[in-house]
Simulated assay, not measured.
Amino acid sequence: MRSRFDVVVIGAGPSGSSAAYRLAQKGFKTLLVEMESLPRTKSCAGMLPPKIRRAIKIPHHLVQRPIEGYMVFAPGESATIRFPHDSGYTVDRGSFDLWLAEEAVEAGSRLMQGTNVLGIKQAKRDTVVFTTSGRYYAKYVVGADGVRSRMRKSLGLHAPSKDQLAFTYQMVFEQDERIIDEIIGNYFHTHYDVSTVREGYLWVSPHRKRLFLGFGTPLGEVQITPRGIIRGFTELERVKLLIKDAKLIKEEAYLIPNSGPYEELGRGRILFVGDAGGFTHPFTGEGIYYAILSGQAAAEAISTHKLGDELTQLYEQIVEKYGLLRLRGLVEERKVKLRGNEAIRRYVQGLKILSTHTS
């Protein structure tokens, strides 16, 4: 007997679980396949902006720290940007991703963990998904398998080029909650300086009892060793005080897309979401919110798809309706606003003026 589903979703990150949740809610027999066992470690600063509330309702127990805004630093300039209405959050990605997958299961999806997808093959009626646990047949497939998507490669679609990727690196420290409260509080810190990070920034992301210090920059713009960049960052007085007597827990490096949604968002009855579709903000590197929206958009495309219609075209229309295609245009904005420290100072000055008008 064939293991047949309406939809197979590959990858139980925010985009995949969001797609599976929406599809199961709509009555689709959905299989959610994850190569690791949840909860798993995910390299991420864990910052969720206030607009995340438009997409999902996050339970209080997942919130590491409410985030009231950003503190932005540049050579000779700084600005405090307070969110005008609701706060953002920091979350632990392992716990957050597990909760999203459990929500998908609660809605009716089947979750299969510890299963690698080996390849896919589109037939006239079904798509066959080959895994280490056997073959699965589905009318639709959602690829949520990350920046190095094996599914894209299996279909012969382009892999992201060096120009479409950013390199990120961070150190995670355990620190006394009172020290975090006193020195940084509920603000996400961003630091711009082209002498260390080009077309990107350094960050401090405060959690309840942990600090995430990292940076992100286009892959081709890494000028010195990652540890050297962070070492220089920790020499700043405010950062030095923040991590004094803190315990280094781990160091991690990872790649993210940084050019907005890819031109090829699907093929046949297969759609790509999250990092596999390039859904990150090219300027800030923000990915969780856009991953969730892309998963919801894929679910809407599949649930409204009619025989004879081109699924990828329908998906792109919905992605545009969700405001996600505009991300492609932000690459040039990043290049202009972050091309040098003088341009960065003007950018931060603009943020300061904008914050006074919205506060």
Rank of each mutant, 00 (worst) to 15 (best):
G94I: 07
V319M: 13
I256L: 10
L327P: 11
K209Y: 11
I52R: 08
E252M: 06
Q313I: 11
F167Y: 15
A55P: 00
L236M: 12
V197G: 00
S133K: 15
Y89D: 11
S149F: 01
G134L: 09
G220A: 13
F283G: 00
Q113G: 07
L31Y: 02
I81R: 07
A101V: 10
G143M: 00
G108Y: 00
T90G: 03
G88V: 07
A74D: 01
H357T: 14
A144F: 02
L314H: 08
P226N: 06
L314G: 04
P75G: 05
F130M: 08
I52D: 02
Q349D: 14
V128L: 07
I344T: 03
Q113T: 03
E333I: 14
E177D: 15
V172R: 07
G143C: 09
K352G: 05
A166E: 00
L311P: 05
E174F: 13
G216S: 15
M47F: 15
G232W: 12
P218E: 10
G350T: 06
G216D: 06
G232Q: 08
S17T: 02
R267A: 09
I10F: 03
L325P: 04
K162S: 06
D92H: 10
W99Y: 12
R2L: 09
G200H: 09
S78W: 11
L327M: 11
N258E: 12
G220S: 15
Y192M: 05
